[in-house]
Amino acid sequence: MTPSPVQSGPAGSDGDSVVRAHGLTLSFQTADGPVHALSDIDLEIGRGEFVSLIGPSGCGKTTLLRAIADLEQPTGGNLSVNGVPAHEARLARGYGYVFQAPALYPWRTIERNVTLPLEIMGMAAGARREKARDYLELVNLSGFEKKFPWQLSGGMQQRASIARALCFDPDLLLMDEPFGALDEIVRDHLNEQLLQLWAKTQKTVVFVTHSIPEAVFLSTKIVVMSPRPGRIIDVIEADFPRERSLDIRETPEFLEVAHRVREGLRAGHSYDD
């Protein structure tokens, strides 16, 4: 088996990498024998990058994200986040995680949901309220502080969960198909807003998706993955300007990158047959 080529973006090449994985493997023991969720992953993500992990279901993209978040334990290889092992990065609150579902607590108001991490960190109530106001404004949810999650639409709930992931100002934002459950119009809208947010906050984003247009539209780097065993088969740089609108999806450059992603996904599948 040939190791995947280590590729890194322009920001990552100067050694300022937020995520660095080398030879990362992760297997689950099941009744039918071990399942190799991740096999020999080499990946470097530089500061300020927007990296998408794309691939068919079962390719390990979510597992890789969860390993970065220290929610899964790798069985081999090295993984460092913010220059320290993933475990320490988690305890240092080094990242904000946005799940597939909003996972807002229904007994808390939107404001108190957003400030949940701050409460855990022991910030004073007054300062928390201020932060909530700022970050709810950032995701265009001002005025909904006192509402409960179930009084908001799905898109608004997911925006609130993004505000929650951002409010303690982590450098790294991990997003696991955050818009997967939303309809396409809301999704487009939130994609645009996410880009603006990224440009404004200068965060590093790792974004899991299975939508090619979404990956190409959002990312500076697209990591194409393939299942059984989960591995990286291509890393594609996409250097569209930081300020971009949905219209770029019609341009030849966009279609070319999308084509390359599609080719990569197809190659991953033919490997299986």
Partner: peptide, 10 residues
């Protein structure tokens, strides 16, 4: 998810 969230905040 709700538990993972708490875990992610340490």
């Amino acid at each position: 998810l709700e538990r993972d969230l708490m875990r992610s905040y340490g």
